[in-house]
Each structure stands twice: as C-alpha cells, then as structure tokens.
Amino acid sequence: MVTTTTAPAPARPSTPGTGRTKKGRLPRSKLPYLLLLPAIALELLVHVVPMVVGVWMSVLELTQFQIRDWSAAPFVGLDNYKATLDVNGPVGKELLHSFWVTVMYTTLSVGLSWLFGLFAGVYLQRPFPGRSLLRTLFLTPYALPVYAAVITWTFIFQRDTGLLNELLTTTGLADDRPFWLIGGNSFWALLVVSVWRSWPFAFLCVMAGLQNVPSEMYEAAAIDGAGFWRRLKDVTLPMLRPVNQVLILVLFLWTFNDFNTPFVLFGGSAPEQADLISIHIYRSSFITWNFGQGSAMSVALLLFLLIVTAGYLLVTNRRREHA
C-alpha cells in the first residue's frame, strides 16, 4: 500500500480540459497513477491496442485464409488503401456511394435533432401544467434500449401490417402500400428513426444549458421590445453557444458512426440507398472476410473524422474568441 503525505490539491474551480495551471503544491505521489491503473489498462486493451493493431492490419492481406495464423499474412503496403480510395474501382466506388449517403443522413439527422431539441428546450423553459410530464416523456426514447426502439419502428414500417401504411391508406395519402424498408424510401425511414432516437439527447443538453441563463436577461430583452425570435437570436443562442459547440460535435460523431439503427432496422443488411458507412465496413469485413480491406476503410474513416473534428473545433473556437 502506498502511503502518502500529500494534501489534496487546493480548491479549484477548474474541471479537466481547461488547461489551467495549478496554484498549489504539486504532490509527487504514485497514488494517482495507481488509482488510474485499472482504467488505463482496460482502455489500452480495448481501445488503444486494437487501434494500433487495426492500422497494422490495414497494410496486410488478411482474408479468411490467414485468419487462423495472421502473423503469416503477407504485407501488401498501401494496396488496401489504394483499392479503398480508388473511386473508379468497384470497392472505392461503393465506398464513395456509402460515404455520400452517410453525409446526407448525418447532416439531416443532426440538423433536425438539434432543432427539435432546441425548440422543446425553449418551450419547456417556463413552468406550465404538465411540463415535467412532457420532459419525462421526451427523454423516454433516449432511455429505451436501441434495439427495442428500432424493432418497434421496423414494425411500424412493415408494408402490410405496419401503422404507417395503414395511416397513409386510410387518410388517402397513398393509394397502394409503399415499401419503406427497401428501395428509396428506406433512407427516409432510417432518418426518421435516427431523429426520434437522438433529438432527446439534444433536448437534454439544451435543457441543462438553459438552466444557466438568468431570467433577467429575458426580462431585459422583453422590455426592449424583443419578440420571440429576437430573444432566441440575441439571448438564448449566444448563451447556449458552449453547449451547442459540444452537442453538435457529439451528435455528428454518433450519427456518422451509427451502426445500430440501420443494422436493427434492416435486419443486418441495409439497402443500397441507406448503406451507411459503418454497415458498409462491417459487411465488407465480415461477409467477405476481407479484414485487411475493412481495416483500411476504418482507418480512412477515422482520419476523415479527425480532420473534420479538428477543423470544426478550430473554426468554432476562433468564432468564439471573435464573438
């Protein structure tokens, strides 16, 4: 047992990530490292080491023939990457298609989820009867296990037994029953499910952020004659800026990497029109057993996400400083 004579750091208002320098003594103790050891060991095993291995795999020819003894897999250099990024080749062409589907899906889903969350948050700011009931209700989709929620949507989208087509035919909006889970409609079905599942998270974050807006700010704006939209633009949105910065990034990453929604909605294989990139890589790896190719795609995806994230943080931070 390591005994230590160090006093805890003096009270400080900072949380991790603010990069504030310490004011007090710097305890030279091994104890913090010992406390972190289990967390670090597990993160290494499940995240860091596999990531390194993944990069290594991406330069190997690793198919079902090498899987039992993968140290014998031949080194192929950047061949997997060439095939992945060659938009004229069959592999690259399909990947590019999947990429654009994912970009569309992510843009629409993040935009709508954020909008829904914002308006729900703003409209639930002031007390009225039934407010806490609505809040609880809105959070329910977020708490539901993803497969239970998405399976229910699968039922709703069934051509012959589902609620949606029943609604469309009885109201006369559609003459015959369209398919929702195959063909072009599948993209929109996927989008609806995605928004349904992620807007409550946006709502939760907006709600947390709005708790810090003093109501005097609204009073003052109202006295100045600011209407709903002016108050939204001049008070709410600026005050929510730090929350939005993180929220939109997190929503973007989650949605772009979304695997669960299409996987459960379409039962393991997505139609071409809704072939999100995670599903595409999964199928390229596990259906064809070409792990080297799949790894190259994963690494390319990671690089793309890192560049987008870095660019986003750069732009939003600069704008924040200028604001």
Partner: peptide
Amino acid sequence: MFPGILFLLPL
C-alpha cells in the same frame, strides 16, 4: 468518439 467498427475487427 471513435467509430466502434474501427476497433471491432482488431478486438
């Protein structure tokens, strides 16, 4: 924040 699919195969 990393895509699960990235470390699924190696893991």
